[in-house]
Design a protein around this nucleic acid. Structure first.
Lengths: 334, 334
DNA sequence: CTGTTAGCGCTTTCAC
DNA sequence: GTGAAAGCGCTAACAG
């Protein structure tokens, strides 16, 4: 391997001069500079980021831990974080906790040992409290992504889940839906809890007991619960609070012989790509996943600039995309 | 920051003993070992991966450069590579070239400077020859992913594009389709070129001139070319060679008022997730993206084990999933 | 079974 | 404008 020493020798200068040429950290006589550049060229020298990082105590890298790399929404965030990293000349170290708290802990540990300059984390559903303590102790700036906490000591960026659900549910209610089944999923996940809260916000309290709220993390249970509720024909609309839940809902409805939107209206969060090309097209609340990723990196950068400022929470606005699955003319007002 | 020295002092041993306890690299008397472990516990010591890597000349990390982090197929590969990395106790450094050769070059450089132990790369469409030379020189093992080269000096893993297209086209031909429009896209990309070759393989040579082969990287041009071809009603089937091309095709057909499968059969590569839930369901050749990712990591590991063995090419089998978009009974045999 | 010590390749005072 | 030299935190001979 060719090191800075080789370059220095060939150029007939000291290693410190080479270093300063490399980094532009002090004035170097043009002639000297030229010789150094030549020597770099000739030797094919490449800076060693490891040694540099060790010496400078910064790696110019950030870590990202996502809870489910397989989900399109998280893939979008990964994409956004990568873009944010490139924009700030950082490299990205990626880990996937796969919704496993132990694996999440290992990932965070590994990233911290690699001395990432910042850590972005979409915590998993049953993230251990030990992780919180661990992060508190770490000197590294942390940004929470997507799954936010109240009173978080960290910066965080997510979506306006509660507000967007309020908009969606209000729209459905004003379209005449009086009995809605909400596939809320695992409400230990803040994102899903917030969406459910938004639904409660929107429903007039006297009508609340007519709604079916299906919570839980067991897919088979959710499925049978949903089918059970829909059998009687009492509900006119189903809302799924995430893409996996939408799959559960659509499959359940299909298995029960219920068509969207003829028999039931349907709306989902996150949804499916290119929904417009297929039938039925699905009313969807879309998360700005990519933008959440870039915003997370920005929060990290800002934090480094002012380490003492109080933690910020960013909520990016989601858009309710109305499509045929909730088309008004098909609703039977009860 | 608490270092190995602090631990050694507290435990009353030398740093080398601490190091050996940490790494299990030599026998340590249980009592000594216990004191060291205690000291580690008390001080909250964490190994510094940077210093360790610098000393050992290995980082236990691998780099991945994908050409389009936004594409689901690549997201799947990222997911697979991450899993492969975890399985081998490696961390993953991710970069996205976004189909930009300059950015690709920068990414590779950055990863090499970070001294990743291996590099997995899905090269972009117009990847510069300079990159090839650069990689040749690098001592780091390289695995090409998805977009393969003939006579590559590197290990590589992709899909059986040519064979799977042969299977698909043969099926369509034997279903009665005699005039097929193939949206081949940018055939500078090996993956797309291989798919097109498979189509040529499958078509009887005397019928070849009846087929429409639409190549190019300009979406608007492809779109108008396709519509032009379809207007006359001469073609009974469209094949799209990637998801973006499928979007182009479906939009074009919709705009031209042509329905799938009533007016035209349609099949695509990669396709859409959960296609079974929507109508029409689309006949799809599915890429085992996740498995390609894990396989790439495995090739990297194998390469480290036997650096001198000759380069291997792996082609993972794609499955042709037949659905309603190509249903036989709708075809008018010409 | 344990300790001493020489670096890994680089940045950055400090001195000239 | 330039150089000498002290480490960053760790591992692994080498020596006992």
């Amino acid at each position: 391997m060719v090191t800075i020493v080789d370059v220095a020798q060939l150029a007939g200068v000291s290693t410190s001069t080479v270093s300063h040429v490399l980094n532009g950290t002090r004035n170097v006589e043009p002639a000297t500079r030229g010789r150094v550049l030549d020597a770099i060229e000739k030797t094919g020298y490449r800076q060693d980021a490891l040694a540099r990082a060790l010496r400078r105590s910064r790696t110019d890298s950030i870590g990202l831990v996502v809870s489910d790399a397989g989900e399109p929404a998280f893939a979008g965030m990964v994409h956004g974080v990568e873009q944010g990293a490139v924009d700030h000349d950082l490299t990205l170290v990626l880990a996937n906790s796969a919704e496993d708290p132990a694996r999440e802990m290992r990932a965070v540990r590994a990233l911290l040992e690699r001395r990432v300059d910042g850590l972005i984390i979409a915590r998993c559903a049953e993230s251990s409290p030990a992780l919180t303590r661990y992060l508190d102790d770490a000197a590294t700036p942390v940004v929470l992504l997507d799954r936010l906490a109240d009173n978080s000591p960290f910066d965080q960026v997510g979506a306006d889940n509660r507000e967007s659900m309020r908009r969606l549910a209000t729209h459905l209610h004003s379209s005449g839906h009086r009995r809605i089944a909400v596939l809320a999923g695992d409400t230990r996940v803040p994102t899903l809890r917030e969406r459910l809260e938004g639904f409660f916000d929107a429903m007039p309290s006297e009508g609340l007991r007519d709604q079916a709220i299906l919570e839980g993390h067991d897919d088979a249970e959710l499925r049978s619960a949903l089918i059970g509720h829909l059998r009687g024909g009492a509900y006119t609309c189903v809302i799924a609070c995430s893409t996996p839940l939408a799959v559960t809902a659509l499959e359940s409805m299909r298995d029960a012989g219920l068509r969207v939107p003829e028999d039931l209206a349907f709306a989902t969060y996150d949804g499916f790509t290119h929904s417009d090309l297929f039938s039925p097209t699905i009313t969807t609340v879309r998360q700005p996943a990519f933008e959440m990723g870039t915003a997370a990196v920005k929060l990290l950068i800002d934090r480094s600039a002012s380490p003492q400022s109080s933690p910020r929470t960013m909520r990016l606005r989601q858009t309710v995309e109305l499509r045929t699955s909730t088309e008004e003319h098909r609703i039977q007002v009860g």
